[in-house]
């Protein structure tokens, strides 16, 4: 598989009205879902989610070993899947990588702005769902650049479908810790009691309740980085 450069895209600072919907199974999602005004600072953002190749390079260069390696890179990245998004990484694993490249994970609000932009688009590519523009309801992960036509207003690719993306921060409501995931994935479980899969809209997040690292890693969960810019 031919490798490619995961170039950084500049996002100019702006304010936008944040309003998010969350997947409601049972329980609550104790965050302010808006509408509220949010200020986005100047940012650089990865065009694609971090790939297996990029993450493998990070491991080679840093010798990173998670404290708890249960399910860490359980899919065993190799050259054949080098351009697929890296998955089976916890939020800690993602943060470690982001730090190494001089970046961080996007906040939930930043992620939405990167995907929806100042026009508040429902999907990265527009306001109408189009299954040919994302890996939706598929059988497996695909290359992060497989759906370039589905890029967002600023040029970011693979924001909806393929794999969920970690956002920054652990939210704590006093009794629970959780993180917010974005974008949906290729996988679609069959029952309404399951986590709703498939590609997800820009204004949609899912509350992943945090447990041990083995439970925090999944075959459909990756990330992309942002970088503070002047």
């Amino acid at each position: 598989m031919k490798s490619f450069v995961n170039k950084k895209i500049f996002i100019e600072s702006n304010e936008y009205t944040y309003r998010v919907e969350h997947l409601t199974l049972e329980g609550t999602c104790s965050t302010d879902h808006g509408p509220r005004n949010v200020k986005i600072k100047n940012l650089l953002v990865d065009k694609y989610p971090v790939t297996n190749q990029q993450y493998s390079f990070f491991l080679i260069k840093t010798g990173y070993q998670p404290k708890d390696s249960q399910r860490f890179l359980e899919h065993k990245p190799n050259k054949k899947i080098s351009n697929l998004p890296v998955v089976f990484v916890s939020q800690n694993d993602a943060i470690a990588y982001a730090k190494w490249v001089g970046g961080r994970l996007p906040t939930d609000e930043e992620w939405q702005y990167i995907a929806a932009g100042p026009k508040y688009l429902d999907w990265p590519w527009g306001n109408k769902f189009n299954s040919s523009l994302c890996n939706h309801d598929g059988n497996k992960l695909e290359s992060v650049n497989a759906y370039r036509k589905g890029e967002s207003w600023c040029g970011c690719v693979d924001m909806s479908g393929n794999c969920w993306e970690w956002t920054a921060g652990i939210h704590d409501d006093g009794n629970h810790q959780f993180a917010l995931l974005r974008g949906g994935s290729y996988f679609y479980a069959h029952d309404h009691w399951h986590v709703g899969g498939g590609a997800r809209k820009n204004n949609y997040h899912w509350k992943l309740q945090i447990l041990n690292e083995g439970m925090n890693r999944a075959a459909t969960l990756g990330f992309r980085c942002v970088y503070d810019a002047k």
Binding site: L25, E26, G27, D68, Q70, R71, W164, S185, F187, A189, D191, W193, H194, V195, G196, G197, L208, Q209, L211, N212, G214, M215, R217, A218, A219, T220, L221
Partner: peptide, 22 residues
Amino acid sequence: WHQYPRLGLDESNQWQLYKYLP
């Protein structure tokens, strides 16, 4: 109780989720 509301994030079934516990 740890399978719901977590099942469906990926293909892991209800028995596999026990393997992922510490």
